[in-house]
Amino acid sequence: MPAAEVPIRIALDCMGSDRGPQVVVEAAALLSQRREDLQLILVGDGRAVGPLLDAQSYEPRRLSLRHTAQWVTAGEAARQALQQKPAASVLVCSQMVAEGQADAVVTAGSTGALILAAERSLGRLPGVRRAALAAVVPTELRHGRGEDPFALLLDVGSTLQVTAQDLVSFAVMGSAYARIISDNPRPRVALLSNGSEPRKGPPEVVEAHALLGDLEGLEFLGNVEGLDIPRGTADVVVMGGFVGNVVLKMLEGFGEVISDLAQDQRSRHLLGRLGLDQLSSGARQIQSLLDWESYGGAPVLGFTHPVIKAHGRSGSRAIANACKVAAKVARSDMTQRIERAVRQQGSG
């Protein structure tokens, strides 16, 4: 790290993961030893987090604890939980960012609670009516100058009911994000629909198609279908949160089934084992493509500061990768760039 480079401070919610604080603490301990450019703030129940941390190798110079005795549990209604728990860990994380004590939030907890906490503490960028949860999915075609093997999908679960205007806003934000993260000067943006024709799809998609077609500065491809997502026809695929969440979970499930089947065949049949071993490098490549843990967290675009949502089932590797994404987003002034893009496109 250059001497002048200021570390990125990440408020890390320890209490959100389905697998408990252990995986979050492991991730933070690992990063504290490897990343000099990060300051990790573990937000959670110190009585649980402290002993877990003490059992790890860690670098205390880059790690601190913010104790809170409240957190949102799985299955709790987000709005009610945050009302009843003003010191909930996810809310404390967002408040720390709002107060300038941290630069980014990372949580594997409830998406609803995260969105509400960020709305309450950070607020949305001017011109953004709804935040969008963006996720990367593996694709056949490569993207950007870095030849990234994934495309960006948004929204994948933040906003269930969307308007055409929301979809346009998502397209603009997604394009700005891909431009920076994938080093892609003109990301190709598409709308997900049930056909490529402009008049296909529900009214908000049809209307969004027309609005996006008129937008200057955006490389709009038109509509794409579900099968185009894994192909990688577009760099950014825009959809409503309900559809996006179903698509994302289906792709994840599909990936897991392929991995399990391959594993099963390998262990069951000698011939299969031989055959698969011959293809081992290819199989490994597929497996690494389908490995969602390696992609880290999903950014929630539209807030004034970086907000990263990791998968609820995340292990320590996925949490660590989510923190790396948070650092990259914070370091690149992403939110300011998105704000500029939204303003220029006049999509608000």
Binding site: A3, P7, Q39, G46, G50, D54, P60, R61, R62, L63, S64, L65
Partner: peptide, 19 residues
């Protein structure tokens, strides 16, 4: 000696108290 920033020393302080 640039071995620690004020923030890092504060973290070390918290760590030894927390333990």
């Amino acid at each position: 000696a640039d071995q620690c920033s004020p923030q890092e020393l504060a973290n070390l302080f918290q760590d030894i108290v927390r333990r």
